[in-house]
Amino acid sequence: MGKKSKDGKKGKSGKKKDHGEYTLADLSPALTQAARSMRTVLTRNLTASGLYAGQDGVILALAASDGLPAGTLAQKLGVKAPTMTRTIGRMEAQGFVERRPDATDARLTKVYLTEAGRNSVTEITSSAAACDELATRGFSEKDVRSLVRLLRAIDGNLQAGDHDEDDGEF
């Protein structure tokens, strides 16, 4: 049987891993799993309000800037236009959003929050806060600030790298 380290976790050798033993190869799996777990908990927290995964982002984007075209929403949330169109259709049927023609350009349709959509913002915010509290249990405020800073840097690097591979075109 392998020896255990202070944190109680065992590595491939049967020995527990010390935090210093993690390598760059551990990053993608750990980050992907953490994101999945966050999404799962947030989705579970939002179920009572009738919202599905991804719909919270649409509502929060519209709460910040109501009356956006579907394409703009898709860009803001990093999804493809057809996905956003289906999401908006479902949310419209649920009564969270409505589509209206633009006041100055009738060819353009914009998405607006309904009263139910506006009322769900508080529930989304509190559900996200509860998820954040759970995820960062045992972290100091400094740890949280560092984590957010590092995650934003990772996102920025990945987005910049993605654009580099496309020769700057979208």
Rank of each mutant, 00 (worst) to 15 (best):
A81R: 13
M1F: 14
D143E: 06
R39W: 03
R90L: 10
T85S: 08
L151Q: 03
A130F: 02
D66A: 02
M38N: 01
A35T: 14
L62Y: 06
A64G: 09
N157W: 12
R36N: 09
L73T: 01
A64C: 06
A106F: 11
T122G: 07
S140E: 01
Y52H: 12
E92T: 13
S140D: 01
A48G: 14
D155F: 08
L150T: 01
E115F: 05
L27T: 02
R39M: 09
I124N: 03
S65M: 08
H19N: 09
K4Y: 00
L51N: 00
Q94T: 11
T104I: 11
A48M: 09
E165I: 06
T43H: 12
A129C: 03
K80A: 11
T85A: 12
E141H: 09
Q75E: 12
V111H: 09
S120F: 04
A130Q: 08
G67M: 01
G138L: 11
S126E: 13
P29Y: 01
T83K: 04
D166M: 09
D155K: 12
S127A: 15
R44T: 12
K12F: 09
A153V: 09
D162H: 15
A25H: 13
L62W: 12
E98L: 15
I154P: 00
K76T: 02
D166E: 07
C131A: 12
M91V: 14
G89C: 00
R39F: 07
A93N: 08
A64F: 09
T87E: 03
S5G: 04
Y22R: 07
T122H: 07
S65E: 13
T109W: 14
L42F: 02
E92I: 00
L134P: 00
N45M: 01
V111M: 07
P82Y: 10
K16A: 13
R118N: 02
Q159N: 15
R90C: 06
G2H: 02
L27M: 14
M84K: 02
A153G: 11
G57S: 11
T40D: 15
I154Q: 10
E141S: 14
K16N: 10
Q75V: 11
Q75M: 10
D164I: 09
T83I: 04
N157P: 00
A34Q: 09
V111G: 04
R90Y: 05
M38V: 07
D105N: 15
T104Q: 14
L51G: 00
